[in-house]
Amino acid sequence: MSTWFMISLLGTIAVIPIHFLSVEHSRLEERYGAEKGKRIGSILGMISGWGIFIFLIGLWISPQPQFLIPLLQDIVFILPLFGLLVLQIPLVHLLLGIVFIIPGAWFGIKGVTEIGLKESETHRPEKVITTGLYSRMRHPQYTGAILSHIGITFLLSSFYSLLVTPLVIVINYLLCWKEEKELVREFGEEYVHYQKSVRMFVPRVRQTDKQQ
């Protein structure tokens, strides 16, 4: 594996403890005081959020072998990028990329707009959000990240990125697990009820009960 890919992979893993610390709001405020604790948590949250995003890009575009799905492999789309690079994308890879990227981007953008950019970066909501998309899934942004990773991996035919996809899913799960652990600490039974009513990653098509 290339040095660039390994740095991106290790960077993605290294960001996990930073994210864990960023959501420990009570602990940070007890140690540093309310205002300073909030500020430190916000800074760590932005570092971890943008860090994971940047390192994921590294996983996708770093030098690596390409894989090919042996189906309609002779049909290739040529995609020039800014006059600097020309991508040759097999039809099946293009279709799979679109299938994953479009809903992934929608979940991510919709999740941010409904909860707010500040809360998305700092992972510090003022209340339990149970409306809109959050009434159907607890973590649309992480679902979007997973789907987008899979879609871009197909689009670029990035073999190493494909290999580490299970790890990317596990990392996103761990981030959600830690966030929810702290949310239960902050909001108590209200968030426990929300956990029982709404799935973590898979959106519920129909609402079986009304969130309060």
Rank of each mutant, 00 (worst) to 15 (best):
62 S>N: 03
64 Q>F: 10
64 Q>N: 03
64 Q>V: 05
70 P>E: 08
71 L>Q: 04
72 L>P: 00
72 L>R: 08
73 Q>A: 09
74 D>S: 14
75 I>S: 00
77 F>L: 14
79 L>Y: 08
80 P>Y: 14
81 L>A: 02
81 L>T: 00
82 F>M: 13
82 F>L: 15
82 F>K: 07
85 L>W: 13
85 L>D: 00
85 L>G: 00
87 L>T: 04
88 Q>D: 02
89 I>R: 07
89 I>V: 15
90 P>N: 09
90 P>V: 10
90 P>Q: 10
92 V>R: 02
92 V>F: 08
92 V>H: 02
93 H>Q: 11
94 L>E: 04
96 L>S: 01
96 L>R: 05
97 G>K: 09
98 I>V: 12
98 I>R: 03
98 I>H: 03
103 P>H: 10
103 P>T: 06
105 A>R: 10
106 W>L: 13
106 W>N: 03
106 W>P: 00
107 F>C: 04
107 F>A: 03
107 F>I: 04
113 T>I: 15
117 L>D: 03
117 L>E: 05
117 L>C: 02
118 K>P: 00
118 K>C: 01
118 K>F: 11
119 E>M: 07
119 E>Q: 10
119 E>V: 12
123 H>F: 15
124 R>A: 06
125 P>I: 05
125 P>V: 04
126 E>T: 11
129 I>P: 00
130 T>W: 06
131 T>W: 14
134 Y>F: 14
134 Y>I: 01
134 Y>T: 01
134 Y>K: 03
135 S>R: 11
